[in-house]
C-alpha cells in the first residue's frame, strides 16, 4: 500500500459498492484504502482494503467501551475532542488515527499531544472533504488547523494520513488531487507522500527495542 486513502465509506454507509470503489481507486492511482463499515480487510484487484472503525466519544471510559466492539477492525479511528480528552486518549487508549481535528478548537492539539502521538505511533488525519466540499469561514478554519498540524508534524514527527471521506463516487479523488489539496493544506511533497503511505506504516509500527532477560 504505497498510496492509500485513509477513510472511505463504501456501501451500505455510502452508495458505492466495494468492488466499484476498488476499480475507481485503481484508476485514480491508489493501491489501498481504509474502508469503514466492511467486516474484514480484503484485497480486490490490486487494491488492498483495511477495515476501519470510527469511535466518537465524550470521555475516555466511553471510548474504551466502544473500543471493545471494534476488536475485529484493522484500523481504529477516534474523533478528536478538547485538549483534555485528546491527551487522555493518546495516553491511555491504543488506537491508530485521530480524526476530525479540524472540528476542534485551536488548543485541542498542541505540542504535548503532538509528542504523545509521536511516542504512541498515532497518526493525525487530514480530511480533504472539508477542503473540497466546504467554503468560506469553515474552509478557512479547516485550512488554518491543518497548517498548524502539518507544522507540528514537521517538528515532532508524528504521522499524518490523508483521507477523502468519500461516501459516493463523486467524493473520491485521485492521488494527484490529494497532492495538490495537501499542498493547499500546508503539507510539503515529502509529507504528502509519507501521509499517503501512512496506513501501511500503521499496520507495521516501528517499536522500540525491548531487552529480554
Amino acid at each position: 500500500m504505497k498510496t492509500a486513502d485513509a477513510c472511505i465509506y463504501p456501501y451500505p454507509i455510502g452508495d458505492v459498492s466495494l468492488r466499484r470503489v476498488a476499480d475507481e481507486l485503481e484508476l485514480r492511482g491508489f493501491t489501498g484504502a481504509i474502508a469503514v463499515g466492511i467486516p474484514a480487510g480484503c484485497t480486490i484487484g490490486h487494491v488492498r482494503f483495511l477495515s476501519g472503525a470510527e469511535i466518537t466519544a465524550n470521555s475516555v471510559k466511553s471510548c474504551r467501551d466502544a473500543l471493545r466492539d471494534t476488536s475485529k477492525a484493522d484500523v481504529v479511528m477516534v474523533h478528536a475532542g478538547d485538549a483534555v480528552f485528546n491527551r487522555a486518549i493518546l495516553g491511555n487508549i491504543s488506537f491508530h488515527i485521530l480524526r476530525g481535528i479540524q472540528h476542534t478548537d485551536k488548543r485541542a492539539f498542541d505540542h504535548v499531544s503532538a509528542r504523545m502521538a509521536t511516542d504512541r505511533g498515532v497518526a493525525v488525519d487530514i480530511d480533504l472533504s472539508c477542503i473540497i466540499s466546504s467554503s468560506g469561514l469553515r474552509r478557512q478554519r479547516s485550512l488554518e488547523r491543518y497548517r498548524e498540524i502539518s507544522r507540528l508534524s514537521r517538528k515532532y514527527g508524528f504521522m499524518l494520513t490523508l483521507s477523502s471521506g468519500a461516501r459516493s463516487l463523486t467524493g473520491l479523488r485521485s492521488v494527484r488531487a490529494f497532492t495538490l489539496l495537501g499542498e493547499v493544506a500546508g503539507l510539503d511533497e515529502s509529507q504528502v507522500s509519507d501521509a499517503l503511505s501512512a496506513p501501511a506504516a500503521l499496520m507495521s509500527p516501528h517499536k522500540s527495542v525491548e531487552v529480554l532477560e
Binding site: 485514480r28 477542503i131 473540497i132 466540499s133 459516493s168 463516487l169 463523486t170 467524493g171 473520491l172 479523488r173 485521485s174 494527484r176 488531487a177 495538490l180 489539496l181 499542498e183 493547499v184
Partner: peptide, 23 residues
C-alpha cells in the same frame, strides 16, 4: 495549470447535479 487542477479537484456540483472532475 496547477492552480486550475487544484480548483477542479474542489468541484462537487454543476447545474444542481453532483459531479467530480478528474484531470
Amino acid at each position: 495549470e496547477r492552480d486550475v487542477e487544484t480548483a477542479l479537484a474542489t468541484v462537487t456540483e454543476a447545474g444542481g447535479v453532483r459531479v467530480a472532475l478528474h484531470p
